[in-house]
């Protein structure tokens, strides 16, 4: 069972308390963007086998959205952080680099 720490209310929430919200840090493109950019934003996903940044909502708790960094093969959680951030905090990136040298992500890492 997946357990994530909610950075807002401080609860270690079991996954039945949480609602998954898909890939994090998508760059949003609006109606005036190119078809390629709009397609990428709506549909293309990193879907990595390894380090994944994702959105979660503490649905049956404080109700807030937050971010998590997690490994999709081992289920290891590297950390959770505020939904206000556009990139993961440095300490989480450093932690990931220590455990998964050479990891990468589309826009950072």
């Amino acid at each position: 069972m997946l357990i994530l720490h909610c950075p807002y209310c401080g609860v270690d929430a079991d996954e039945t308390e949480l609602a998954p919200g898909g890939e994090a840090h998508l760059k949003r493109f609006g109606p005036d963007s190119s078809d390629e950019d709009f397609e990428g934003y709506l549909f293309h996903r990193e879907n990595p086998k390894g380090v994944h940044f994702e959105r979660w909502r503490h649905a049956n708790g404080c109700g807030k959205w937050f971010h998590a960094a997690r490994c999709t093969t081992t289920m290891e959680v590297f950390g959770t952080y505020s939904a206000q951030l556009t990139e993961p905090p440095k300490e989480i990136c450093d932690k990931i680099s220590g455990k998964r040298p050479g990891w990468s992500w589309r826009i950072f890492g």
């Binding site: 898909g22 890939e23 397609e39 990428g40 549909f43 293309h44 996903r45 990193e46 879907n47 990595p48 086998k49 999709t72």
Partner: peptide, 18 residues
């Protein structure tokens, strides 16, 4: 389930999640 991983080797992205 590994389509995204192999597509990445070929250099394109997919509208797929595993």
């Amino acid at each position: 389930g590994h389509s995204g991983v192999v597509a990445d080797m070929a250099g394109f992205r997919l509208p797929v999640e595993s």
